[in-house]
Design a protein around this nucleic acid. Structure first.
Length: 598
RNA sequence: GGGCCCGUAGUAUAGCUUGGACAUCACAGAGGCCUCCGGAGCCUCGAACCCGGGUUCGAAUCCCGGCGGGCCCGCCA
């Protein structure tokens, strides 16, 4: 282990030396047959996933066509010239491939040492330069969270955990849109005495209220009917417009921010159950108050692309940016002088660029054009920074179409969690009648929230998810509870063998069963998976890895006795300890609670 | 009409940015495993790259064209 303060890089990935050894060996072997190629190119060709025949695979096709030699023949010649390397078996030529295997004892020794030494830090990368801001969720405070919105929060939170593990310094932000028409609608309706509410709105609320209503449910309840009502009643819509104007002019109705705050409070309580929180909250209206919006308007009007409309509105002529709109104009200031959402978003991003080297926004696909418009406006004022967007597709309802609050197709996160807890409680009670009620409750909550988080994060963001209750509440197979179960099982074995550790001394030559080596190989992949997910924002890869690891551990568990074994017992306990540690670390990245027992 | 995204077994998904050897995993289906450290588990079997071109030694992956689905195209947010 590297000593503290030595300035040397701490080893974080067991594969680093093996990939280096294979690459430099290939370069030398190629040199010996008269071929010269840079090591960096070898590394990109080298398949670190291995193939059916080894841990590392090198396809020689490209070299072969360069040399004008048949690929099979070249593979054989390279295999002969590959220099002896202590940690790798001699390469085997198979067809057009050169296959390497890490010496199994070396794989076991290096991996288990690294996992057990690094502990909670296993999987983490070296610290990275540059502050990062991840903005996610930012749902309008108009009512309870529904499943569609929560995908944003889960992707954003997981991405944050992954980036931090990869070494980045991340600040999360939730942008609260308290200036738009949507928040104004809520204030408008609550600003009226209840007996003067329009009939359809009153009808949508009455008879559904209860004393224990969550704040977001209570204050958000009239929103869907209000939204529908305003579409058909221009007079009422004009009143809402007046609320918007007051907000924009800096003198909102006194209760405005308080109502938004209450709804937000309820939404955040739901997210907290999923382990999701935020470092900072940015109120849109604060950007107005501190002058950022005015400065942004000044810069936009000063742009060479700015044009004035007949009624006094201002726009950017974005024809050069090829936005897929019917008009090439992007209006950033209304005829009455007020700003628009996209304008305030420009102000917000300028504030982010001033503090952060990297700015990441997690957005639903319906915001894609908005993202491009934002970029166009940033370009128009000569700003060189751009946010990186992580775009995810919608969660759709089984009948087709997007999940929306208005259509009544929305399932609230709280409803989903309630169902999930109820089901989890039944499962726990059936299996563990010995546990006290409070413990059953704690486990049911962890299983339920773990299942929901996992179910949503496991799918690639650019794939739409069709919401089905039976899938969302599944506790078996590719699910959060499956991973939690493996963790609990590993914990149970270690409890029963607690006399032996920690620490867990081991002898690599005692861990030779194919299921043992396969498990170690899976453990060794973890740092690479974290780095990959951080680089590509493919957070679903973490969920996939968690499942692979849990599955591999279960295979080992069934195939190989641990506590009942003889000379191998100590080494197998070390393998269980390393597995438990890695399961714990990957669960942490997913925001799924590890359970010692379930 | 224009733009972006998606299309992999019955269902649902991984692999696609960096083209490479028998395409991953789950649910459902068929058949096995509880004298054994926790069966929310393990083992075995059957089953898929939307269609048509192109590039390439090689295409699920890259390019073009269809078809099907989603989303967006506002002085809303």
């Amino acid at each position: 282990m590297t000593t503290a303060g030595s300035g040397e890089a701490v080893a974080t990935d067991p594969w680093t030396p093996w990939i280096a050894a294979a690459s430099s060996g290939i370069v030398r072997a190629a040199g010996a047959v008269g071929l010269s190629l840079p090591e960096s190119e070898v590394r990109t060709l080298l398949d670190a996933e291995g193939g059916p025949e080894g841990d590392l695979a090198f396809p020689v096709h490209r070299l072969a066509s360069l040399a004008g030699t048949p690929a099979d023949e070249l593979a054989l010649r390279l295999a002969e010239r590959f220099p002896p390397t202590p940690s790798l078996t001699a390469p085997a030529a198979k067809g057009a491939y050169l296959n390497f295997r890490v010496v199994p004892e070396e794989l076991v020794r290096a991996t288990l040492s690294l996992v057990l030494e690094r502990g909670d830090a296993y999987g983490r990368g070296p610290p990275q330069e540059g502050a990062v801001c991840v903005e996610h969720t930012s749902a309008n405070p108009t009512g309870p969270f529904h499943i569609g919105r929560v995908r944003n929060a889960i992707i954003g939170d997981t991405l944050t955990r992954v980036l931090r593990a990869a070494g980045a310094g991340v600040t999360t932000q939730y942008y609260i849109d308290d200036m738009g028409r949507q928040a104004a609608m809520v204030t408008w309706i609550w600003g009226k005495p209840r007996d003067s509410w329009p009939e359809p709105i009153r009808a949508s609320v009455e008879g559904r209220e209860g004393p224990d209503d969550k704040v977001d449910l209570r204050w958000g309840r009239p929103y869907p009917a209000t939204s529908a009502y305003l579409k058909e009643h221009p007079g009422a819509a004009a009143e809402v417009a007046e609320v918007v104007r007051k907000i924009e002019s800096g003198s909102p109705p006194p209760e405005h921010r308080a109502i938004a705050g209450k709804i937000l409070e309820g939404m955040l309580a739901s997210l907290a159950r999923l382990g999701i929180g935020f470092d900072e909250f940015v109120w849109e209206s604060d950007l107005l108050r501190d002058g950022s919006v005015e400065r942004t308007l000044d810069r936009l009007r000063a742009s060479t692309l700015a044009v004035r409309e007949e009624n006094g509105a201002w726009a950017i002529d974005a024809g050069g940016f090829a936005l897929p709109k019917e008009s090439t104009k992007v209006v950033f200031q209304r005829g009455d002088g007020t700003s628009l959402y996209v304008t305030r978003d420009v102000a917000y991003h300028l504030a982010k660029f001033a503090r952060f080297a990297r700015v990441i926004d997690v957005l639903g696909q319906d915001h894609r054009l908005h993202a491009r418009t934002l970029e166009a406006l940033l370009a128009a004022i000569g700003e060189s920074h751009r946010p990186a967007f992580v775009i995810y597709q919608d969660i759709t309802v089984p009948e087709g179409g997007r999940m929306s609050t208005r259509g009544g197709s929305a399932v609230w996160l709280d409803q989903l969690l309630e169902e999930a807890v109820e089901r989890a409680r039944g499962e726990v009670l059936a299996r563990r009648p010995d546990l006290p009620a409070s413990e059953v409750e704690r486990i049911a909550e962890a299983v339920a929230t773990g299942a929901v988080r996992y179910h949503i994060v496991r799918v690639a963001p650019d794939k739409a998810v069709r919401f089905r209750w039976e899938d969302a509440l599944s506790f078996e197979g590719r699910s959060g509870p499956f991973v939690q179960y493996s963790y609990a099982r590993a914990s149970s074995v270690l409890r029963k063998g607690e006399a032996e550790g920690p620490p867990y001394p081991f002898d690599p030559s005692r861990l030779v069963d194919p299921d043992e080596v396969a498990l170690v190989r899976t453990l060794s992949r973890f740092p690479g998976v974290v780095a990959y997910a951080a680089r590509t924002s493919h957070v679903h890869a973490i969920a996939g890895y968690a499942h692979d690891l849990a599955e591999q551990f279960n295979r080992f568990y069934h195939a190989v006795p641990v506590l009942r074994s003889g000379a191998e017992r100590a080494s197998r306990l070390a393998l269980v300890a390393a597995s438990r540690q890695t399961l714990r670390n990957v669960l942490e990245l997913l925001g799924v609670a590890p359970l010692e027992t379930m």
